[in-house]
């Protein structure tokens, strides 16, 4: 099963790649970095890691809509929420339980929620 793992955090404080908080003690940051490295190595070996990207501050985003066939562009994120999308990962896991475990081990889950969404496919087997 494939999942899109959406990593949310407060843009005021995130610091890639572990989403450590501004001003976090260096020893904590080092530990989170190690946890992240271990997790990524494990996911690479198991084939569960597919892809992923960190995102820039939502202040840099632009929201596009088409109103009356006219494109309108507004600076800033879609929703003014405290938590914003900070990055994503695509995972290929055997079960929901495994995906939840991985999300729980991602260092930033301490600071912001992680949402798991199953991914749709263009392929399928005869039924």
């Amino acid at each position: 099963m494939r999942f899109l793992m959406l990593i949310h955090d407060n843009p005021r404080r995130w610091e890639h790649p572990t989403f450590a908080q501004h001003g976090s003690p260096p020893e904590d940051i080092a530990r989170w970095q190690q946890e992240l490295d271990d997790l990524l190595a494990e996911l690479n070996d198991s084939g569960e890691y597919v892809s992923g990207l960190p995102l820039a501050d939502p202040a840099r985003s632009r929201t596009v809509r088409v109103v009356d066939e006219e494109i309108t562009v507004v600076d800033g994120p879609l929703a003014e929420a405290k938590e914003q999308l900070a990055g994503y990962m695509v995972l290929d896991c055997a079960s929901w339980e495994r995906a939840e475990e991985i999300a729980g081990r991602f260092p930033s889950s301490r600071f912001g929620p992680i949402e798991l969404r199953p991914v749709m496919f263009a392929s399928g087997a005869e039924m």
């Binding site: 099963m1 494939r2 991914v119 749709m120 496919f121 392929s123 399928g124 087997a125 039924m127």
Partner: peptide, 11 residues
């Protein structure tokens, strides 16, 4: 429940 687009269409 399915995550397959052709299966969803079929169902």
């Amino acid at each position: 429940l399915t995550t397959s687009i052709p299966e969803q269409r079929f169902l």
